[in-house]
Simulated assay, not measured.
Amino acid sequence: MARAGLTAERVTEAAADLADAIGFENVTVSAVARSFGVRDASLYSHVKNLQDLRERVTLLAAGEVADRIAAAVAGRSGKEAMTAFANAYRAYALAHPGRYAAYQTPLDPAVAARSAAYVRNVELTYAMLRAYDLDEPHLTDAGRLLRSTFHGYVTLELNGGFSHSREVRASWDSALDGLHFLLQHWPGRPSD
């Protein structure tokens, strides 16, 4: 019988909070059970196993990222939208390092395809990039460039990888200016 008050959503949220506190790679069913003051077996009515729990955290994080980006880019286009998108992405990663690590965890392609949050993240990226008059395959290439740039930057930032005296935010802003310029002058882009 399920312990009163426990739900799959509460267990997932607790695991996500724990990921932010101790790192996604350290989240276990036992650690989450301890956070509720219950035995591991009490959670198995709500999650199948550790893989299911971590997958749920990954999907939760994907939804949170999509919500933040959607709110940030609403009513914006071009550089303003790209900057808002990037800043929302970075802010989420810095505020929720464990959830962010979960969001970067590869999912089974079938699971990702069924996830409204994952689909929404792709749609938000493509919608923002269309203001740069890009079509396929350039949309995919530009999306990959942005994701790898944003991810690389925040991963280095989270790991203390920027030790130069220049303020990290100033370098971030310069990088966004450079990305905007590149998107405006994308190689092979349709002519005006």
Score class of each variant (00 low, 15 high):
Y132K: 05
F150G: 01
H180T: 14
A91V: 06
F85W: 04
R166W: 01
R39P: 13
D20F: 06
I69K: 01
V122T: 07
A61C: 06
F36M: 05
F85E: 00
S165P: 04
F24Y: 15
R68G: 12
D20W: 04
R166I: 07
T140V: 11
I22N: 15
V111I: 14
G63F: 14
E157D: 14
L107G: 10
A175F: 08
V32K: 03
L176E: 08
G152K: 02
Y44A: 03
L145M: 15
V65A: 01
L6C: 11
A16E: 04
Y100L: 08
A14M: 08
R169F: 00
S115L: 12
Q104G: 13
T149F: 01
D177G: 09
T140Y: 06
N121A: 06
S35M: 13
L179Y: 00
V32L: 09
R3L: 13
G75R: 06
G188K: 04
A117N: 02
L145T: 10
E157R: 02
E64L: 05
H46I: 01
A4P: 14
R189I: 03
D135T: 15
T125L: 11
F162P: 01
Y132P: 03
S171Y: 01
Y44N: 06
W186F: 15
A175W: 05
I22E: 15
H151G: 04
G78T: 13
S174M: 08
T12G: 02
D192N: 12
V38F: 03
G37L: 12
L50I: 13
I69N: 00
D141P: 02
V154H: 01
E123F: 03
Y153W: 15
M1T: 12
Y118T: 05
A8S: 08
T140I: 07
K79T: 11
A95I: 09
T125S: 10
N49E: 05
F36C: 05
N159F: 10
L146R: 01
V29I: 15
Y132W: 14
A74L: 14
D40S: 14
A84F: 05
H180F: 10
A72R: 09
G75F: 05
P190S: 10
G178K: 03
L139G: 08
R76L: 13
L53F: 10
T125G: 10
T28A: 13
D133A: 15
A93R: 02
A72N: 08
E136L: 07
I22D: 15
A19E: 02
R76N: 04
V111F: 05
R114G: 14
D108P: 06
T83I: 09
Y153D: 02
F150T: 02
E9R: 10
A127P: 04
A93K: 01
P109R: 07
L134A: 04
A131S: 15
D40W: 13
L146T: 00
A16I: 07
D177T: 11
A21M: 07
L182D: 08
L183P: 02
D192S: 14
D67H: 06
G188M: 03
A112I: 00
T58G: 09
V119G: 08
K79N: 12
A62P: 00
